[in-house]
Nucleic acid binder design. Structure first.
Length: 290
DNA sequence: CAAGTGCCTTTATC
DNA sequence: AGATAAAGGCACT
């Protein structure tokens, strides 16, 4: 099946799937394969066209964020030469509409890990506790359900090399399995309320909450601060903070809650209601071209 | 090749 | 409030 891409609404499949927002896509030749929900999706991009297999147009357009008016969003966040450089390099990078449950567990796993290791952990979880699905003679695995993770033994989770994250994943899975969160409701509530709810789960701090809000709960003002974005701020946006604040966070590797809040709030105020888009462009640019 | 460093941080404790 | 330490183990240099 083919989707015609409108030149006035840019899309960059490689940047979108490589930028670190999602961890379960792999490229085989020119095709991207990824398990989304119960099935394996297969996608490739040619000049002005997206070719998809094993899914329907409506679902894929929503998942890939193709309904976002990207031209308008990019013009709104184009505040200075640094973000403009990142946008020029990766025009068409879009924020996916990921499944909140998978996103939540993924980012609990993502703390203090590099992307390769995160992919490995999530693959381990899926192979051991998900269901096998096939496409083109490749094996894939669905992401484990809340029930599966809630009922998994400590030993099974330990084998997935989650480390100290295993107990957070397990506790959080049990809470989700007991219906202590309603993701569809969180999509409709505002940023602050949705964030406060996520912060109740073990293993979810400010940064993880902001990632879940941005990547799966339609909160595009969320501006997650990780080590890479902190570097970007220290390199290009120092002037927006006091000298003593900057020297304080330059010295230490970790941020206090208050310091995190200050950096994240800067992002939200400076870039506006699509700050999260700015964050992704800056993050991907910093990681790949610096 | 071994060993050190860093990793899209959170939590517990003082 | 703020500082400090601890918590897997993999990937990269």
């Amino acid at each position: 099946m083919k989707i015609k891409l409108n030149p006035s609404s840019p899309f960059n499949l490689d940047a979108t799937l490589c930028c670190g927002q999602t961890f379960r896509w792999d490229k085989q030749g020119e095709w991207w394969y990824g398990v989304v929900g119960e099935s394996v999706l297969k996608i490739r991009q040619t000049e002005n066209c997206l070719e998809i297999e094993n899914t329907d147009t409506h679902f894929v357009k929503n998942y890939l964020g193709l309904h976002d008016d990207l031209t308008s969003i990019l013009s709104q966040i184009s505040k200075d030469k640094h973000i403009k450089q990142a946008i020029a390099t990766f025009t068409g990078l879009r924020i996916l509409r990921q499944d909140p449950w998978e996103c939540l567990i993924s980012y609990i796993c993502a703390t203090y890990k590099n992307i390769a290791a995160i992919k490995r952990m999530l693959l381990n979880l899926s192979c051991r506790l998900g269901d096998k699905v096939w496409l083109d003679s490749y094996d894939f695995y669905t992401f484990p359900t809340p029930e599966k993770l809630a009922k998994a033994s400590a030993g099974e989770l330990a084998k997935c090399s989650l480390g100290y994250r295993a107990k957070y994943v397990h506790e959080t899975a049990k809470m989700v399995y007991e219906n202590l969160v309603d993701f569809e409701r969180l999509k409709k509530t505002d940023y602050d309320e949705a964030r406060a709810e996520l912060l109740r789960f073990p293993g979810i701090g400010q940064k993880v909450a902001d990632c879940i809000l941005l990547f799966s709960l339609d909160k595009f003002e969320a501006f997650p601060i990780d080590v890479w974005i902190k570097r970007v701020i220290l390199r290009h946006y120092k002037s927006h903070f006091s000298a003593e604040f900057i020297s304080k966070i330059e010295d230490k590797q970790s941020l206090t809650n208050r310091e995190y809040e200050k950096l994240s709030l800067f992002g939200r105020k400076y870039f506006g209601k699509f700050a999260g888009y700015a964050q992704e462009y800056l993050y991907h640019y910093e990681r790949t071209l610096h």
